[in-house]
Every structure is written in structure tokens, then in C-alpha cells.
């Protein structure tokens, strides 16, 4: 490409460094930083739980596992599904990519729906002591990330219909997919913390 010296009248080489775009670097740095917020919440949850004289609000002994477990399975498998979508894109199979990508979006949406159903069936609220606050804060904050992920995927899906969209690389798709894996890993930690550690 443009890495050669295009101005032969100069007697020195205006050198260039060869490397891929900065967007991915920036995005990875951002995700590392983002994970610290979750980390802070997780630590907060653990500290409050360990030191609290009473943890669950009155009348509650724990949370039901069934619904969240289904959700977990869906979200975790969607992380594999998105991988195949990316594979199709690399192989320039655009329709394959679009379909699988859309399936990932559906799985993500189901997760949000499941979360909504779970929330609406709970008998405690945001104001129900430290536990109530922590529960809604963690699941809510994660839920926001899932929704963001779905919206970003939708954006990428639309853009895949633009002609020549992938000429400059597949940065967008790669980033969103990375984000999705991130959301997934966070959920696994969160699930362990809130639901399994009761």
C-alpha cells in the first residue's frame, strides 16, 4: 500500500510502521477498563454479603434458580453461535453471516426477556436492603450491556447490506463479537456470585 516512500526527491526514508488499525487496540483497552467496574461491584457484593448481620430481606431465603439457569445456557451458547457468524464472514459467506448473526441477536433478546420475567416475579425491590440493591444493580447493569450488545449487533447487521462495507476490514463485527464474549464472561461470574453462592 502506501508504505513506500512516495517522494523520491527526499534523501531519507520517512519510515512507517506497519500494523493494523488502532480501533481494536482502543476497544480492548476500553473493555479492560470496563471490566473493573464489574469487578468493583462484585467486590462490593462479596464484602457486604460476608459482613452483613442479616443478608436477605425479610421473608426471603434465596432466589429461584430455574429461570436464570435457562438464561445462562442461552447466553453462553450464543457466545459460540456468534463465533460461527464471524467464521462465515471471513469466508465471505454474507448470508450465512447474517442469519447466524441474527440468531445470536435472538438469543440475546431471549435473555433480556427472561431477565424481565424474573424481575417481575421477585418479591423484593431495589430498596430492599443491601441485598435488594445489589441484586438489581448487578443484573440491571449487566442487562444494559446485553441490550447495548444487541443494538450494536443490529447496527452491524444493517451495515452488512451496505455495498463494500467490509473493504476496510471487519473491525466492527470483530469488536461487537468481542464485546459479546465479554458480556458472557461477566454473566458467568455474576451467576456464580448471586445465584450459586447463596
Amino acid at each position: 500500500m502506501l508504505t513506500e516512500n512516495q517522494n523520491p526527491s527526499l534523501n531519507h526514508k520517512p519510515g512507517h510502521i506497519k500494523h493494523d488499525g488502532h480501533n481494536m487496540t482502543g476497544f480492548i483497552i476500553f473493555l479492560c477498563s470496563e471490566s473493573i467496574i464489574f469487578f468493583a461491584f462484585f467486590v462490593g457484593y462479596s464484602v457486604l454479603k460476608i459482613s452483613a448481620p442479616v443478608w436477605y430481606p425479610e421473608g426471603i431465603n434465596g432466589i429461584d434458580l430455574k429461570m436464570p439457569l435457562i438464561n445462562t445456557v442461552i447466553l453462553v451458547s450464543s457466545s459460540f453461535v456468534i463465533y460461527f457468524a464471524e467464521k462465515y464472514l471471513h469466508k465471505k459467506n454474507l448470508w450465512g453471516f447474517r442469519i447466524i448473526w441474527f440468531i445470536t441477536m435472538l438469543m440475546g433478546s431471549y435473555f433480556v426477556y427472561g431477565q424481565y420475567v424474573e424481575w417481575s416475579e421477585l418479591s423484593f425491590s431495589l430498596q430492599s436492603g443491601a441485598f435488594g440493591g445489589m441484586f438489581y444493580l448487578l443484573t440491571g447493569f449487566h442487562g444494559l450491556h446485553v441490550i447495548t450488545g444487541i443494538l450494536l449487533m443490529g447496527l452491524m447487521l444493517l451495515r452488512s447490506f451496505l455495498p463494500d462495507n467490509y473493504k476496510g476490514g471487519e473491525m466492527g463485527v470483530e469488536s461487537v463479537s468481542l464485546f459479546w464474549h465479554f458480556v458472557d464472561v461477566i454473566w458467568i461470574l455474576l451467576f456464580g456470585l448471586i445465584y450459586l453462592w447463596q
Binding site: 436492603g129 440493591g133 444493580l137
Partner: peptide, 18 residues
């Protein structure tokens, strides 16, 4: 912000916060 505005108890002792 939640404690101040939405009455949660992360740091509020009344609800077991720290």
C-alpha cells in the same frame, strides 16, 4: 447516586449497607 436518589442501601446502615 442510587443511595442518594433511589433510596437503596449500599452504604446506608438502615438497610444493612456499609
Amino acid at each position: 447516586f442510587f443511595d442518594l436518589t433511589f433510596g437503596t442501601s449500599f452504604f446506608r446502615i438502615e438497610g444493612g449497607g456499609d
